[in-house]
Protein backbone atom coordinates (compact mmCIF):
# COMPACT_ATOMS: atom_id res chain seq x y z
CA UNK A 1 0.00 0.00 0.00
CA UNK A 2 1.01 3.62 -0.40
CA UNK A 3 0.95 5.72 2.74
CA UNK A 4 -2.34 7.16 1.52
CA UNK A 5 -3.84 3.69 1.17
CA UNK A 6 -2.43 2.64 4.53
CA UNK A 7 -4.00 5.64 6.26
CA UNK A 8 -7.29 4.97 4.50
CA UNK A 9 -7.10 1.36 5.59
CA UNK A 10 -6.55 2.46 9.20
CA UNK A 11 -9.68 4.64 9.03
CA UNK A 12 -11.65 1.87 7.35
CA UNK A 13 -10.59 -0.72 9.92
CA UNK A 14 -11.40 1.46 12.93
CA UNK A 15 -14.70 2.67 11.47
CA UNK A 16 -15.73 -0.93 10.87
CA UNK A 17 -14.75 -1.98 14.39
CA UNK A 18 -16.14 0.97 16.31
CA UNK A 19 -19.33 2.86 15.43
CA UNK A 20 -18.07 5.73 17.59
CA UNK A 21 -15.37 6.62 15.06
CA UNK A 22 -16.43 9.51 12.82
CA UNK A 23 -14.31 11.16 10.14
CA UNK A 24 -14.78 14.68 8.85
CA UNK A 25 -12.99 17.67 7.42
CA UNK A 26 -12.81 19.91 4.38
CA UNK A 27 -13.47 17.89 1.17
CA UNK A 28 -13.22 14.68 3.17
CA UNK A 29 -16.67 13.24 2.47
CA UNK A 30 -18.01 12.80 -1.05
CA UNK A 31 -14.75 13.71 -2.75
CA UNK A 32 -12.55 11.64 -0.44
CA UNK A 33 -10.04 14.30 0.53
CA UNK A 34 -7.61 16.36 -1.51
CA UNK A 35 -5.01 13.61 -0.97
CA UNK A 36 -7.61 10.82 -1.29
CA UNK A 37 -7.01 9.49 2.22
CA UNK A 38 -10.75 9.25 2.95
CA UNK A 39 -11.80 8.04 -0.49
CA UNK A 40 -14.73 5.62 -0.40
CA UNK A 41 -15.39 5.97 3.31
CA UNK A 42 -18.56 8.00 2.93
CA UNK A 43 -19.96 5.55 0.39
CA UNK A 44 -19.17 2.67 2.72
CA UNK A 45 -20.17 4.11 6.13
CA UNK A 46 -22.71 6.78 5.25
CA UNK A 47 -22.82 10.52 5.61
CA UNK A 48 -23.23 10.52 9.37
CA UNK A 49 -19.88 8.73 9.80
CA UNK A 50 -17.80 10.50 7.15
CA UNK A 51 -18.78 13.97 6.02
CA UNK A 52 -17.71 17.26 4.50
CA UNK A 53 -17.26 20.22 6.79
CA UNK A 54 -17.24 24.00 6.44
CA UNK A 55 -13.84 25.64 6.02
CA UNK A 56 -13.27 26.34 9.68
CA UNK A 57 -10.41 24.60 11.41
CA UNK A 58 -11.45 25.97 14.80
CA UNK A 59 -14.89 24.60 14.09
CA UNK A 60 -13.61 21.17 13.06
CA UNK A 61 -11.68 20.72 16.27
CA UNK A 62 -14.28 22.47 18.42
CA UNK A 63 -17.14 20.23 17.33
CA UNK A 64 -14.85 17.20 17.60
CA UNK A 65 -14.21 18.04 21.25
CA UNK A 66 -17.95 18.31 21.83
CA UNK A 67 -18.47 14.96 20.08
CA UNK A 68 -15.78 13.40 22.24
CA UNK A 69 -17.56 14.83 25.28
CA UNK A 70 -20.62 12.91 24.11
CA UNK A 71 -18.64 9.70 23.71
CA UNK A 72 -17.63 9.56 20.05
CA UNK A 73 -14.10 9.18 18.69
CA UNK A 74 -13.75 11.88 16.06
CA UNK A 75 -10.96 11.87 13.50
CA UNK A 76 -10.57 15.34 12.02
CA UNK A 77 -8.60 16.19 8.92
CA UNK A 78 -6.89 19.56 8.67
CA UNK A 79 -6.26 19.93 4.94
CA UNK A 80 -2.67 21.12 5.44
CA UNK A 81 -0.74 21.44 8.70
CA UNK A 82 -0.10 25.02 7.60
CA UNK A 83 -3.80 25.69 8.24
CA UNK A 84 -4.04 24.32 11.74
CA UNK A 85 -3.47 27.68 13.42
CA UNK A 86 -7.13 28.79 13.44
CA UNK A 87 -7.75 25.68 15.56
CA UNK A 88 -4.97 26.43 18.02
CA UNK A 89 -7.27 27.68 20.77
CA UNK A 90 -9.43 24.55 20.63
CA UNK A 91 -6.39 22.28 20.53
CA UNK A 92 -4.26 23.97 23.18
CA UNK A 93 -6.85 25.41 25.55
CA UNK A 94 -9.49 22.72 25.22
CA UNK A 95 -8.58 19.28 23.83
CA UNK A 96 -5.20 19.13 25.53
CA UNK A 97 -6.52 20.14 28.92
CA UNK A 98 -9.97 18.60 29.04
CA UNK A 99 -9.00 15.57 31.11
CA UNK A 100 -6.83 17.60 33.45
CA UNK A 101 -9.13 20.51 34.10
CA UNK A 102 -12.19 18.32 34.62
CA UNK A 103 -10.24 15.73 36.63
CA UNK A 104 -11.31 13.08 34.15
CA UNK A 105 -15.01 14.07 34.18
CA UNK A 106 -14.60 14.75 30.44
CA UNK A 107 -11.89 13.61 28.03
CA UNK A 108 -11.04 14.47 24.44
CA UNK A 109 -10.04 11.34 22.53
CA UNK A 110 -9.75 13.29 19.29
CA UNK A 111 -7.33 12.49 16.46
CA UNK A 112 -6.28 15.48 14.36
CA UNK A 113 -4.69 14.39 11.09
CA UNK A 114 -2.74 16.83 9.00
CA UNK A 115 -0.44 16.52 5.99
CA UNK A 116 2.81 18.29 6.78
CA UNK A 117 6.31 18.90 5.51
CA UNK A 118 7.89 20.19 2.35
CA UNK A 119 9.72 18.91 -0.65
CA UNK A 120 6.73 19.29 -2.96
CA UNK A 121 7.12 22.91 -4.08
CA UNK A 122 4.36 23.79 -1.65
CA UNK A 123 5.70 27.22 -0.85
CA UNK A 124 4.98 28.96 2.41
CA UNK A 125 1.60 27.48 3.25
CA UNK A 126 1.77 23.91 1.97
CA UNK A 127 5.12 22.88 3.45
CA UNK A 128 5.31 23.69 7.12
CA UNK A 129 6.27 21.35 9.94
CA UNK A 130 4.53 22.80 12.99
CA UNK A 131 5.26 19.90 15.37
CA UNK A 132 7.06 22.06 17.93
CA UNK A 133 3.86 24.05 18.50
CA UNK A 134 2.27 20.83 19.69
CA UNK A 135 5.11 19.09 21.51
CA UNK A 136 5.19 22.18 23.73
CA UNK A 137 1.57 21.62 24.81
CA UNK A 138 1.06 19.41 27.83
CA UNK A 139 -1.74 16.91 27.35
CA UNK A 140 -1.20 16.35 23.63
CA UNK A 141 0.45 13.44 21.90
CA UNK A 142 2.28 14.28 18.70
CA UNK A 143 3.00 11.49 16.23
CA UNK A 144 4.58 11.36 12.76
CA UNK A 145 5.02 8.17 10.71
CA UNK A 146 7.65 7.71 8.01
CA UNK A 147 6.22 4.78 6.04
CA UNK A 148 2.92 3.03 5.21
CA UNK A 149 3.29 0.22 7.75
CA UNK A 150 3.88 2.60 10.64
CA UNK A 151 1.29 5.04 9.33
CA UNK A 152 -1.50 2.49 9.58
CA UNK A 153 -0.42 1.02 12.91
CA UNK A 154 0.09 4.42 14.46
CA UNK A 155 -3.15 5.90 13.14
CA UNK A 156 -5.15 3.01 14.56
CA UNK A 157 -3.35 3.48 17.85
CA UNK A 158 -4.03 7.24 17.75
CA UNK A 159 -7.75 6.75 17.17
CA UNK A 160 -7.96 4.17 19.95
CA UNK A 161 -5.91 6.32 22.33
CA UNK A 162 -7.89 8.17 24.99
CA UNK A 163 -5.61 11.21 24.78
CA UNK A 164 -5.84 13.81 21.99
CA UNK A 165 -3.35 13.02 19.22
CA UNK A 166 -1.83 15.35 16.65
CA UNK A 167 -1.16 13.04 13.72
CA UNK A 168 1.28 14.57 11.24
CA UNK A 169 1.55 12.95 7.83
CA UNK A 170 4.59 13.87 5.72
CA UNK A 171 2.87 14.35 2.39
CA UNK A 172 6.18 13.98 0.55
CA UNK A 173 6.06 10.34 1.67
CA UNK A 174 2.45 9.72 0.61
CA UNK A 175 3.39 7.92 -2.61
CA UNK A 176 6.91 6.71 -1.99
CA UNK A 177 9.98 7.13 0.20
CA UNK A 178 11.97 10.31 -0.36
CA UNK A 179 15.62 10.67 0.56
CA UNK A 180 16.05 14.26 -0.57
CA UNK A 181 17.28 13.41 -4.06
CA UNK A 182 14.59 15.35 -5.84
CA UNK A 183 16.38 14.93 -9.15
CA UNK A 184 15.66 11.19 -9.08
CA UNK A 185 12.26 9.63 -9.85
CA UNK A 186 10.15 8.52 -6.89
CA UNK A 187 10.24 4.79 -6.23
CA UNK A 188 6.68 3.77 -5.34
CA UNK A 189 5.88 2.11 -2.02
CA UNK A 190 4.86 -1.01 -3.90
CA UNK A 191 8.55 -1.69 -4.43
CA UNK A 192 9.51 -1.22 -0.80
CA UNK A 193 9.11 -3.72 2.07
CA UNK A 194 7.57 -1.01 4.31
CA UNK A 195 4.82 -0.74 1.71
CA UNK A 196 3.73 -4.25 2.67
CA UNK A 197 0.79 -3.45 4.90
CA UNK A 198 -1.58 -6.04 6.37
CA UNK A 199 -5.24 -5.56 5.46
CA UNK A 200 -6.76 -6.02 8.90
CA UNK A 201 -6.36 -4.51 12.34
CA UNK A 202 -2.99 -4.05 13.99
CA UNK A 203 -1.51 -1.26 15.94
CA UNK A 204 1.84 0.06 17.08
CA UNK A 205 2.61 1.52 20.49
CA UNK A 206 2.02 5.25 20.39
CA UNK A 207 5.15 6.13 22.35
CA UNK A 208 7.86 3.88 20.92
CA UNK A 209 10.71 4.81 18.59
CA UNK A 210 12.12 2.39 16.04
CA UNK A 211 15.69 1.89 14.97
CA UNK A 212 15.38 2.58 11.30
CA UNK A 213 19.00 1.90 10.44
CA UNK A 214 21.24 0.26 13.02
CA UNK A 215 24.73 1.74 13.30
CA UNK A 216 27.66 2.14 15.63
CA UNK A 217 29.34 5.46 14.94
CA UNK A 218 26.76 8.11 15.62
CA UNK A 219 23.09 8.45 16.52
CA UNK A 220 20.68 10.36 14.31
CA UNK A 221 17.38 11.48 15.79
CA UNK A 222 14.84 12.00 13.02
CA UNK A 223 11.20 11.54 12.06
CA UNK A 224 9.06 11.71 8.95
CA UNK A 225 10.84 12.39 5.69
CA UNK A 226 14.15 13.11 7.41
CA UNK A 227 14.48 9.45 8.43
CA UNK A 228 14.98 8.63 4.75
CA UNK A 229 17.31 11.56 4.20
CA UNK A 230 19.44 10.56 7.20
CA UNK A 231 19.68 6.96 6.03
CA UNK A 232 20.73 8.20 2.60
CA UNK A 233 23.38 10.46 4.15
CA UNK A 234 24.76 7.46 6.05
CA UNK A 235 25.16 5.49 2.82
CA UNK A 236 26.68 8.43 0.96
CA UNK A 237 29.19 9.37 3.67
CA UNK A 238 29.97 5.81 4.64
CA UNK A 239 29.49 6.80 8.26
CA UNK A 240 27.81 4.00 10.19
CA UNK A 241 25.01 6.08 11.62
CA UNK A 242 22.23 4.65 13.74
CA UNK A 243 19.08 6.35 12.48
CA UNK A 244 16.31 6.43 15.04
CA UNK A 245 12.81 7.12 13.76
CA UNK A 246 11.14 8.71 16.76
CA UNK A 247 7.60 8.09 15.41
CA UNK A 248 6.19 9.49 18.67
CA UNK A 249 7.55 12.99 19.09
CA UNK A 250 6.01 13.67 22.48
CA UNK A 251 5.65 11.92 24.82
CA UNK A 252 8.65 10.15 23.35
CA UNK A 253 10.70 7.02 23.75
CA UNK A 254 13.67 8.51 25.56
CA UNK A 255 15.13 5.14 26.56
CA UNK A 256 15.79 4.05 22.98
CA UNK A 257 17.42 7.38 22.22
CA UNK A 258 19.63 7.39 25.29
CA UNK A 259 20.74 3.79 24.81
CA UNK A 260 21.85 4.62 21.29
CA UNK A 261 23.72 7.82 22.17
CA UNK A 262 25.43 6.12 25.09
CA UNK A 263 26.61 3.51 22.62
CA UNK A 264 27.76 5.86 19.84
CA UNK A 265 28.78 8.94 21.84
CA UNK A 266 27.68 11.26 19.02
CA UNK A 267 24.33 12.70 18.11
CA UNK A 268 22.86 14.55 15.16
CA UNK A 269 19.29 15.84 15.28
CA UNK A 270 17.51 16.37 11.96
CA UNK A 271 14.20 18.00 11.14
CA UNK A 272 12.58 19.97 8.35
CA UNK A 273 11.06 22.53 10.67
CA UNK A 274 12.83 25.80 11.35
CA UNK A 275 15.67 25.68 13.81
CA UNK A 276 15.07 28.10 16.67
CA UNK A 277 12.88 26.61 19.41
CA UNK A 278 12.20 23.69 17.07
CA UNK A 279 11.64 20.22 18.51
CA UNK A 280 15.34 19.52 17.86
CA UNK A 281 16.23 21.92 20.67
CA UNK A 282 14.33 19.75 23.13
CA UNK A 283 15.96 16.60 21.76
CA UNK A 284 19.44 18.12 22.02
CA UNK A 285 18.76 19.31 25.55
CA UNK A 286 17.51 15.89 26.64
CA UNK A 287 20.49 14.11 25.14
CA UNK A 288 23.05 16.40 26.75
CA UNK A 289 21.21 16.24 30.07
CA UNK A 290 21.16 12.44 30.14
CA UNK A 291 24.27 11.52 28.12
CA UNK A 292 26.72 14.30 29.01
CA UNK A 293 29.51 11.96 30.04
CA UNK A 294 29.09 9.76 26.98
CA UNK A 295 29.20 12.56 24.45
CA UNK A 296 32.38 12.87 22.43
CA UNK A 297 31.22 15.71 20.22
CA UNK A 298 28.78 18.62 20.37
CA UNK A 299 25.27 17.66 19.35
CA UNK A 300 24.61 18.79 15.79
CA UNK A 301 21.26 20.04 14.50
CA UNK A 302 20.38 20.00 10.82
CA UNK A 303 17.08 21.76 10.24
CA UNK A 304 15.20 24.07 7.97
CA UNK A 305 16.47 27.64 8.08
CA UNK A 306 14.79 30.23 10.29
CA UNK A 307 12.84 31.58 7.35
CA UNK A 308 9.36 30.98 6.00
CA UNK A 309 9.37 28.01 3.62
CA UNK A 310 10.31 29.49 0.22
CA UNK A 311 9.03 28.34 -3.15
CA UNK A 312 11.78 28.67 -5.76
CA UNK A 313 14.57 28.00 -3.24
CA UNK A 314 12.98 24.74 -2.05
CA UNK A 315 16.16 22.66 -2.31
CA UNK A 316 18.32 25.28 -0.63
CA UNK A 317 15.89 25.25 2.26
CA UNK A 318 15.18 21.53 2.58
CA UNK A 319 17.85 19.79 4.70
CA UNK A 320 18.90 17.23 2.10
CA UNK A 321 21.41 14.41 2.36
CA UNK A 322 24.30 16.74 1.48
CA UNK A 323 23.73 19.01 4.46
CA UNK A 324 22.95 16.10 6.74
CA UNK A 325 26.11 14.29 5.61
CA UNK A 326 28.22 17.36 6.40
CA UNK A 327 26.86 17.35 9.93
CA UNK A 328 27.72 13.65 10.26
CA UNK A 329 31.30 14.46 9.27
CA UNK A 330 31.52 17.36 11.73
CA UNK A 331 30.24 15.12 14.50
CA UNK A 332 32.77 12.42 13.63
CA UNK A 333 35.69 14.85 13.39
CA UNK A 334 35.04 16.62 16.68
Amino acid sequence: MTMIQALRSALDVTMARDAKVVVFGEDVGYFGGVFRVTEGLQAKYGKSRCFDAPISEGGLVGVAIGMAGYGLRPVVEIQFADYVYPATDQIVSEAARMRYRSAGDFTAPVTIRMPCGGGIYGGQTHSQSPEAFFTHVCGLRTVMPSNPYDAKGLLIAAIECNDPVIFLEPKRLYNGPFDGHHERPVVPWSRHPLGMVPEGWYKLPIDAASIFRPGKELTVLAYGTMVWVAACAAEETGIDAEVIDLRALWPMDLETVLASVRKTGRCVVVHEATRTSGFGAELAALVQEHCFHHLEAPIERVTGWDTPYPHAQEWDYFPGPGRVGEAFKRAMEA
Binding site: R49, G58, V63, G66, M67, Y70, G71, P74, Q90
Partner: peptide, 19 residues
Protein backbone atom coordinates in the same frame (compact mmCIF):
# COMPACT_ATOMS: atom_id res chain seq x y z
CA UNK B 1 -11.04 30.63 27.26
CA UNK B 2 -14.18 32.41 26.21
CA UNK B 3 -16.56 31.05 23.56
CA UNK B 4 -14.79 27.74 22.94
CA UNK B 5 -17.64 25.79 24.51
CA UNK B 6 -20.18 27.33 22.11
CA UNK B 7 -18.73 25.30 19.23
CA UNK B 8 -18.30 22.24 21.42
CA UNK B 9 -22.00 22.35 22.28
CA UNK B 10 -22.81 22.10 18.59
CA UNK B 11 -20.46 19.12 18.29
CA UNK B 12 -22.18 17.40 21.21
CA UNK B 13 -25.54 17.94 19.55
CA UNK B 14 -24.16 16.60 16.26
CA UNK B 15 -22.90 13.53 18.11
CA UNK B 16 -26.33 12.92 19.59
CA UNK B 17 -27.76 13.09 16.07
CA UNK B 18 -25.06 10.77 14.71
CA UNK B 19 -25.84 8.30 17.48
Amino acid sequence: NLATQFTQAVGWGMASAIA
